[in-house]
Design a protein around this nucleic acid. Structure first.
Length: 800
RNA sequence: GUCCGGGUGGCGGAAUUGGUAGACGCGCAGGACUUAAAAUCCUGUUCCAGCAAUGGAGUGCGGGUUCGAUUCCCGCCCCGGGCACCA
């Protein structure tokens, strides 16, 4: 019986004492940066999801180490943020204290996992040594015009009492606490990520899941179209509309302005429409994001602004409206027509005339005969010189025409908004800016960093939307770094996603006190070769980190443009099909299973459950299969019969196993790698195994069951440590069988099977198939009209 | 609404440049060992019929292409995820 707990503790101690996992960054071996998204030290325990994510990453890292790479596999803690602060508000325990305690506990558990974390390089984002450099990065962005403060309607979470970035709002609700998000006009800090749309759309050289790239692309939302100028009839102003559908310009019968557009006030000022428009705007503002989006087209709010404008292509006089369905995207003004469903419905409601310019065959059609918009592509009519053309083919030509006539100009738009990074909360990195009576907004110089977060703040939210630091005079009042005069500090803190957007740069440079990172070290170690984390970060952390890295790259601070070369997402572990959560009370804790079966069994079971990217549903029962496997493995190594029945077959199967396990681990298919071990074990328990094969077997299992392998390796007289032994090689020839068993089909139905040489000729194969009684029986039913032989796959007859 | 994934035994899952569907494990049934139990070992296990050989059905549903389809094509249904007034 394998004494898992005892043996695992023995090796955990030895690994620690020997500093086996402290990566020597200067080694001559090829580097491999193996990274998993660092955990948030909330609660004080690793949950099953952490294990499911981390253990396979470690298995992969161990495999790469045995393949001869100098593997850097660091671990750290994303320790700023709301959970710690909310916990503090609830219990009165300072986040600094609870975070330190949780990190300690998590390190103990992470060690029990038996993973080769390099804790010597750990980062803790809430430590001044770290956030000093988060602030420094803020400064770099500020100095280059990429960080700015502006007053804007922003997402506000009434429950978290803070603003949120667009990326942190899901279905109109706070991504953290699910409260409904409202809009609030506040002065906030932004990072100018919207300038980086095109650079972020360049995925050259990245080995990322298609889906993740697609999600980011959708989020960035590049669209090309043109801005078309519609002069007001009275000549007082010009309305610039953004459209991707310049082909419908001849059907435009009205223009619509977004309610938030400053132009609305100018247009109605001093007219009889002023009062009505103002009331309508208030009503629209009262709607939440969800309401505004859920109302169907014909119920949209809006009204006439009392002005007319001229369609530049045909000189027609058309009315100007304001409506809730127009967003502050593009120019915030759109041209409207019968080829858009929203426009169509809005026009019907307000009795605005409509006309078509596209139909299936180019013959004139009339909106009066239609219930809704005509949104299909087709042939243009009533469109001047473009009549008779396919609308999609005409589109680029019409844009050229519009530009040529000076009616407007081609332009590109992105859906991506600037990243709102200020938070009205205590537990975050202070924004290194002060406000001086004399000098105005002043950036804190590098020599004065970090701006230290005070320990004595009253972290309870004030309820007025202001940061708790507002009331901390010791923090707030300061001297201006420029003139030495009286000044106050910025009291907002940074979004934790800023902290996590550069941590991967810090790990290999963690011993530097005088800079965030060292260019030469970065050049050696970045990009991250393998990055593993949840898919929910596609448009948050993964986008932010790319943005920050690209900025640092553009500033010449980081050699590589992209931070993460290969990306993989782990799936989610559920319980009875439901997401595990404390509130549902269905959380499965790993500790009891580790206690009972040991870490190796537990992590191997998680890997055996299914493909890594799929996740799975937790079931207490299945783990016994892995426990049995480990016991049988242990017994085999210690007392397995060395009397081998078939030496050649043993050798062949061993080489097949080497190939299979290596290939599977490389693509994170741990489930089939474990299956292959079981099959091999079942084979050698019958066939017997020799000492050489035992050693190879132990090496192969080392990435998946590190403690078991280390102990077996010692038993077999191997030199410490097994992870520093060379991964076994296989002979391709030995992995191919000389004979194959293939099926014989008659009219597509399997009627027998034959064992033939792998390179048997068609004649040999067919002859062998005809020797089967059952096959002959079916062949006798008619005349053979076709004979099929696919070597190694199938023999087939078609009987007519 | 739209764009991605996915749907295989009682369960987790294997197998796709079209070629014997169900590897491996769990569970279950029977047997061995034991006074007994646990543990362990052996045998069986997609469903239906049959002692068996074997035959029939079968990879969400309905069609199609093919000697042959879980795999390719068309049309649906269901589940998971992303985006959602972006003009």
């Amino acid at each position: 019986m394998y004494q898992a707990r005892e043996i695992e503790q023995k090796w955990q101690k030895k690994w620690k004492d020997s500093e086996l996992f402290n990566t020597n960054l200067k080694s001559k071996k090829p580097k491999f940066y193996n990274l998993t998204m660092f955990p948030y030290p909330s609660g004080d325990k690793l949950h099953i999801g952490h294990w499911y994510n981390f253990a396979p990453v470690d298995s992969y890292g161990r495999y790469m180490r045995m393949k001869g790479f100098n593997v850097l596999q660091p671990m750290g803690f994303d320790s700023f943020g709301l959970p710690a602060e909310n916990y503090a508000i609830k219990t009165g325990v300072h986040p600094k204290i609870s975070i330190a305690k949780n990190i300690d506990h998590m390190i103990t558990q992470l060690t029990e996992m038996g993973a080769m974390w390099d804790f010597a390089k750990k980062v803790v984002t809430s430590s001044p040594e770290y956030y000093k450099w988060t602030q420094w990065i803020f400064c770099k962005l500020y100095e280059n015009g990429l960080a700015y403060k502006k007053n804007a309607p922003v997402n506000w979470c009434p429950s978290c009492q803070t603003v949120l970035a667009n990326e942190q709002v899901k279905d109109g609700a706070c991504d953290r606490c699910k409260s409904e998000v409202t809009k609030k006009d506040l002065s906030q800090w932004f990072f100018k990520i919207s300038d980086y749309g095109d650079k972020l759309l360049d995925y050259e050289g990245l080995d990322w899941p298609e889906k993740t790239i697609l999600m980011q692309k959708d989020w960035i939302g590049k669209s090309s179209g043109c801005n078309i100028n519609f002069p007001l009839e009275d000549g007082s102003d010009v309305l610039t509309c953004y459209t991707t559908r310049a082909d419908t310009i001849h059907s435009v019968t009205f223009v619509v302005v977004a309610p938030e557009h400053p132009l609305v006030d100018d247009l109605v000022k001093g007219t009889k429409y002023e009062k009505e428009v103002r009331a309508m705007r208030e009503e629209i503002k009262k709607q939440t994001l969800i309401e505004r989006a859920s109302v169907s087209g014909k119920d949209k709010l809006g009204c006439f602004l009392g002005k007319y404008t001229i369609n530049p292509v045909n000189g027609e006089k058309i009315p100007v409206y304001m409506a809730s369905f127009v967003l502050m995207y593009g120019t915030g003004v759109v041209m409207a027509d019968a080829h858009d469903q929203r426009d169509f419905e809005f026009a019907r409601k307000h009795n605005i005339p409509l006309k078509f310019v596209i139909s299936e065959d180019g013959n004139e059609i009339n909106p009066d005969d239609f219930e809704g918009a005509y949104t299909e592509d087709g042939i243009l009519f009533d469109s001047g010189d473009f009549s008779g053309m396919n609308n999609r083919e005409a589109l680029p030509k019409m844009m050229d025409y519009i530009e040529g006539k000076n009616f407007g100009n081609k332009t590109i738009n992105f859906r991506l908004r600037d990243w709102l990074i200020s938070r009205q909360r205590y537990w975050g990195a202070p924004i290194p800016v002060v406000y001086c009576d004399k000098c105005g907004e002043v950036l804190v110089p590098e020599k004065d960093l970090p701006v230290v977060l005070p320990d004595d703040a009253d972290f309870a939210p004030s309820g007025d939307g202001k940061s708790p630091l507002e009331k901390n005079a010791g923090f707030k009042n300061c001297k201006c770094p420029k003139c030495g005069g009286k000044a106050t500090r910025e009291v907002d803190t940074m979004d934790t996603f800023v902290c996590s957007s550069w941590y991967y740069l810090r790990y290999p440079c963690n011993d530097l006190d005088d800079k965030a990172f060292d260019k030469a070290t970065i050049k050696n170690w970045l990009p991250v070769d393998m990055y593993v984390g949840g898919p929910e970060h596609a448009c948050m952390h993964l986008l932010y980190a790319r943005f920050i890295n690209i900025v640092l790259h553009d500033l010449g601070l980081v050699p590589n443009k992209e931070p993460f070369k290969k990306l993989i997402h782990q799936g989610m572990i559920t319980k009875d099909g439901a997401k595990m959560s404390k509130s549902k009370g269905n959380v499965v804790g790993p500790d009891a299973f580790v206690e009972k079966y040991g870490s190796d069994v537990f992590r191997m079971y998680l890997m055996f459950m299914g493909p890594f990217t799929d996740g799975g549903d937790w079931n207490d029962k299945g783990i016994t299969g892995i426990a049995r496997f480990v016991d049988r493995f242990w017994n085999l190594i210690n007392e397995g019969s060395e009397k081998v029945l078939d030496k050649d077959l043993l050798k062949k199967n061993l080489h097949k196993l080497i190939k299979k396990v290596g290939n599977d681990v490389e693509i994170f298919h741990f489930n089939t790698a474990v299956s292959a071990f079981m099959e091999f074990l079942n084979f050698v328990l019958k066939n017997g195994i020799d000492a050489g094969a035992k050693k190879v077997l132990v090496q192969l299992v080392a990435p998946l069951a590190p403690h078991l392998a280390e102990e077996c390796w010692e038993v077999l007289g191997g030199k410490f440590s097994v992870v520093d032994s060379k991964w076994p090689e296989y002979d391709e020839k030995l992995t191919i069988d000389d004979t194959v068993t293939i099926g014989v089909q008659v009219n597509g139905k399997v009627r027998g099977e034959v064992e033939i040489s792998k390179d048997a000729s068609k004649e040999e194969a067919l002859a062998s198939a005809r020797s089967q009684e059952n096959v002959l029986k079916y062949l006798a039913e008619g005349k053979v009209v076709k004979e099929i032989y696919v070597p190694g796959k199938i023999i087939g007859f078609v009987v007519g």
